[in-house]
């Protein structure tokens, strides 16, 4: 078992492969790995309540996967009404996760 930190920077409305990223996150978690999804840049767009892609985030959270959203990216995009369960984080938190021993980080 390993720690996985998956960082999503892309907008699912712009990048069709972003729609597969939650499946990758779920698959890694299903194999027994500690898995965190960190959303940054346009990757935060699905956590706005009412977004077409918000259900994908809710599903991950229901399945006990930690979903974090970068506060700077949220503010830039006027996103304040978040999908339930999403945690607001910053780069300090990202660094702490990155530097956790044994963590594999993947930026998308």
């Amino acid at each position: 078992m390993a720690n996985y930190l998956l960082i999503e920077s892309r907008d699912p409305f712009d990048s069709s492969d972003s729609q597969y990223f939650p499946e990758l996150v779920q698959g890694i978690s299903d194999r027994g790995n500690d898995t965190v999804l960190f959303l940054v840049q346009n990757g935060v767009l699905p956590v706005r309540k009412g977004s077409k892609y918000s259900e994908a985030m809710s599903r991950l959270i229901r399945n006990k996967i930690k979903v974090l959203a970068d506060s700077f990216s949220l503010k830039e995009r006027a996103i304040s009404n978040l999908v339930e369960g999403v945690e607001i984080a910053d780069m300090d938190r990202l660094l702490d996760l990155l530097l956790e021993p044994g963590t594999k980080a993947i930026w998308h």
Binding site: S9, V40, Q41, N42, F72, D90, M91, D92, L94, L95
Partner: peptide
Amino acid sequence: ANSTSALRIINA
């Protein structure tokens, strides 16, 4: 925005 994020991470 990758450049901004990278610089933010390095700064942090």
